[in-house]
């Protein structure tokens, strides 16, 4: 591109012990820590500030019942990411030892594991986006389906009983003008009358009875907002990592023929980034799913 030779492009600088790219990526990761740090702080602040009993806590009977996230899926994803970190290191180590082919293979495995992570994440997101929480104006009881309730506090500190049902919308009935007349709502097993094991059945709900109806998407609650934004941003980082790794697998790999050291360095930098993305998940998993 140009004849200008930048010092310490490949060889480490005697003072820092790093070549330029590696130093740069560490600085970039420092800024990333501040980015995710701010998001984690947001989570902490909102959770601490939430009125008692409104923050969904895993396994706690005091909140709206259950754990609303799927821990087994997240555990599987954690395994995917940790394994991908190992294969990432192996890719770099093989390149360093001069084995291009093995390095490429491990890089490919890393990409595949990252892809698997995203697939699992897709199923997790999808189930949340089609799962509804309906809050009623008052106690709801029709056709043997009864709303559950819990006593919460408003932000002003006054006590408030919340009547709700969780479930799926089977059908939305509209009139000729397109205005919604009613929903055919299939409650989850545990909220329908008769409790666990009882054959659930769908019930008709009219918009006038509903105080708020929302999916378990980002707008569902502060917790879900945090969940979607933080894991979403983390997911974008995964996508970014995949794009970079694919580049180095395909077009970018031409560099191996002319500058093998530089190519290995680039994989090392990609690896540092990848470990960071991995590490963020290691924090996200307990914070969002387990605590």
């Amino acid at each position: 591109m140009s004849a200008t030779v930048i010092p310490y492009d490949v060889k480490p600088h005697p003072l820092t012990g790093m070549y330029n790219g590696k130093f740069g990526i560490w600085l970039f990761l420092a800024s990333e820590i501040m980015l995710f740090g701010a998001l984690f702080s947001t989570y902490v602040l909102l959770r601490v500030g939430a009125p008692e009993g409104t923050w969904p806590i895993a396994g706690s009977p005091t909140t709206r019942g259950d754990n609303i996230l799927q821990v087994p899926l997240a555990a599987l994803n954690t395994a995917f990411l940790i394994t991908s970190s190992v294969t990432m290191v192996l890719a770099w180590a093989n390149l360093k030892m001069g084995s291009f082919k093995k390095g490429q293979q491990f890089l490919l495995v890393t990409v595949l594991l990252a892809g698997a992570f995203l697939v699992v994440k897709y199923f997790e997101y999808n189930s949340k986006l089609h799962h509804y929480a309906v809050t009623f104006n008052e106690h709801f009881d029709r056709d043997g389906v009864e709303s559950k309730s819990f006593k919460g506090l408003t932000q002003a500190g006054t006590e408030k009983t919340i009547h709700y049902l969780w479930g799926h919308v089977e059908e939305t009935k509209k009139d000729a003008d397109g205005a919604i007349q009613s929903y055919l709502f299939m409650p989850d097993h545990d909220t329908s009358h008769g409790g666990e094991g009882h054959e659930p059945k769908a019930v008709e709900i009219h918009p006038a009875e509903i105080a708020r109806m929302t999916t378990f998407g980002p707008g569902g609650s502060s917790f879900l907002g945090c969940y979607f934004v933080i894991t979403g941003l983390h997911g974008l980082h995964i996508v970014g990592g995949i794009v970079v790794m694919l580049w180095f697998l395909l077009t970018g790999s031409k560099m191996w023929k002319t500058q093998p050291d530089k190519y290995a360095n680039r994989i090392e930098c990609t690896g540092l980034y990848w470990h960071f993305v991995d590490l963020v998940w290691i924090f996200l998993f307990p914070v969002l799913y387990l605590l």
């Binding site: 600085l27 420092a30 800024s31 501040m34 980015l35 995710f36 740090g37 701010a38 998001l39 934004v229």
Partner: peptide, 12 residues
């Protein structure tokens, strides 16, 4: 490097 990311988070 270190102060801008929190605003990026806030903006997001």
């Amino acid at each position: 490097l270190l102060a801008f990311p929190p605003l990026e988070a806030a903006g997001l």
